[in-house]
């Protein structure tokens, strides 16, 4: 009885969470006259790919997706790499000192990204990196580092000290210890951190708009916001929803791939002993 109730409640929660996404997909698949029809048509009578085609034909949407992939992928890789180096060093310090440094980093993370848009722009303009992928990658990495360092430092600390010392005696160089011992053994944390950083970068809007303002450098969120109809009063809901649906797919794929490692990590932890 208790179990059934639990399942019903769980079902409701899932329904509640997934409904907006479901609605997005349905709207994306509706022909344009059905999108605006009143009373609202919940299930489209005919499925059409008209909206999706429009997204690609009217705008260089493929290019936007590519931009987003480059920026989010690059920022994730850079963040994980730098955070690993920092966390590796923090681990060699005593816990008190390391925690103090980490807290300092967190102060940076408290500031909302929107507030940093202008300072970032000024700095990157001086570096001639506005409208460059690398400029935005740098900004995203800076924003995500405190969080990534926090996660990886915790993961590295969990590895037994003796493992590191055994590696030291076996003759590993410091970088060898980081890349051959610490990182492979922290794969679950690396995956989770990577996914979260990637999603942040994939969804980020203000900085992407500010730091890469040229049309060809739009990332997906910026590109979607710029979708417009024939007149300012017409919002192309069908196309917007089609764009959103299409851009969710890469994220889902990435999570699906990494999930294997996340779960693998969880079970190895459980099997130990």
């Amino acid at each position: 009885m208790k179990k059934i109730l639990l399942y019903i409640l769980m079902g409701l929660v899932i329904l509640y969470c997934l409904f907006p996404f479901f609605w997005t997909i349905l709207t994306a698949l509706k022909p344009s006259d059905e999108v605006f029809s009143l009373p609202v048509i919940y299930l489209p009578k005919t499925l059409s790919l008209e909206n999706s085609e429009n997204v690609f034909s009217k705008r260089p949407f493929g290019r936007y997706i590519l931009n987003s992939l480059i920026v989010a992928g690059g920022a994730t890789a850079l963040t994980l790499w730098v955070a690993s180096l920092i966390a590796f060093h923090l681990r060699s310090l005593d816990l008190k000192k390391a925690t103090r440094i980490q807290r300092g980093l967190l102060i940076g993370a408290i500031i909302p990204p929107a507030l940093l848009a202008i300072p970032f722009f000024v700095v990157l303009a001086k570096l001639m990196l506005v409208n460059h992928y690398f400029g935005l990658i740098l900004a995203y990495a800076a924003l995500n580092l405190p969080f990534a360092v926090w996660m990886l430092h915790a993961a590295f600390r969990q590895l037994p000290k003796e493992l590191d010392e055994a590696a030291l005696m076996d003759g590993f160089s410091p970088m060898g210890r980081l890349f051959k011992i610490f990182m492979p053994l922290s794969r679950p944390t690396l995956s989770i951190t990577g996914v979260l950083v990637f999603i942040f970068c994939w969804n980020e809007f203000i900085l992407a708009l500010t730091l890469m303002p040229s049309q060809l450098k739009y990332t997906v969120p910026v590109g979607i916001s710029m979708l417009s109809g024939a007149s300012v009063y017409e919002i192309p809901w069908g196309e917007i929803n089609a764009a959103v649906t299409l851009t969710t797919i890469p994220v889902i794929l990435i999570i699906a791939v990494l999930q294997r490692w996340v779960i693998e990590g969880l079970t190895t932890g459980a099997m130990k002993g």
Binding site: P160, E162, L163, E165, A166, M169, G171, F172, T268
Partner: peptide, 28 residues
């Protein structure tokens, strides 16, 4: 430590969990 020509066996063995036995022994 790596230049001292010593080898240590740890109380909790400290084997590399992600490497096979052969590799654990060969890596040094």
């Amino acid at each position: 430590p790596r230049e001292r020509n010593i080898a240590m066996v740890f109380q909790n063995y400290a084997l590399y969990p992600h490497k096979r036995v052969f590799e654990n022994m060969a890596i040094g």
